[in-house]
Computed example of a mutant assay.
Amino acid sequence: MTEVTGRYLIPAIKKLPGLVSYYAGVAPDGSVVHVSVWESDEHARQMSRLKEIIVDARQDAERAGVTLTPIVNHPVEWTV
């Protein structure tokens, strides 16, 4: 599923202003995590409004039997 969704998510996410970095990982058990770093909270909130995520990826995930959890924004407390 991540290969299919990556085809349209990567270009859409790259167009968003304020993106610092974006990572998608898949564990051997099939669980998936996406982590992104943004210049501001407002930039991060764009993900909750991105059609390719809230419509397209959700539909692809549901067809694959995957349950999506809501996007959660966490302020950075510290870095290494």
Rank of each mutant, 00 (worst) to 15 (best):
M47R: 10
E42M: 05
K51C: 04
S21P: 09
D56R: 04
T69E: 11
T2R: 05
G25S: 13
T79C: 15
T67S: 09
H34I: 07
E77L: 12
Q46L: 05
I13H: 03
S31G: 03
H43G: 15
L9Q: 06
K15G: 01
G18F: 00
G25A: 15
P70R: 05
N73M: 13
L16P: 11
L50F: 00
H34R: 05
G6W: 04
S36F: 07
I10N: 03
P17I: 10
I54K: 08
L50E: 00
D41W: 10
K14F: 11
W78I: 14
G65Q: 10
W78K: 04
L16S: 08
L9D: 05
R49E: 13
M47H: 02
E3W: 14
E3D: 03
L19N: 13
D29R: 14
T79F: 13
K15Q: 09
K51T: 05
S48R: 07
V66T: 11
D29Q: 02
Y23S: 08
S31Q: 15
T69N: 14
E39P: 15
T79Y: 06
K14R: 11
A24P: 04
Q46C: 09
A24R: 05
P75A: 05
V66W: 07
K14E: 12
W38Q: 07
E52W: 00
I10M: 05
A57V: 09
T69V: 10
P28S: 10
S31P: 07
L16Y: 00
E39A: 13
R49G: 11
R58N: 04
V32K: 09
E3N: 10
Q59L: 15
G65W: 08
W38R: 04
L9S: 00
V55F: 04
H43P: 02
S40V: 12
E62R: 12
G6I: 02
V35Q: 06
R49M: 06
M1A: 15
Y23P: 07
V72E: 06
P70M: 03
Q46E: 05
T69Y: 10
G65P: 09
I54Y: 10
P28C: 02
S36E: 08
G65V: 07
I71C: 02
T5S: 07
D41R: 14
K14V: 12
L19R: 06
V76Y: 09
A44N: 13
S31W: 11
H43C: 12
D41G: 06
R7E: 01
A64E: 04
A64D: 01
R63W: 03
L19W: 11
N73P: 02
A12G: 01
S31T: 15
E77V: 14
K51Q: 09
G18I: 08
L9Y: 00
S31K: 15
D41K: 08
G6H: 05
I10T: 03
D29W: 13
E39F: 00
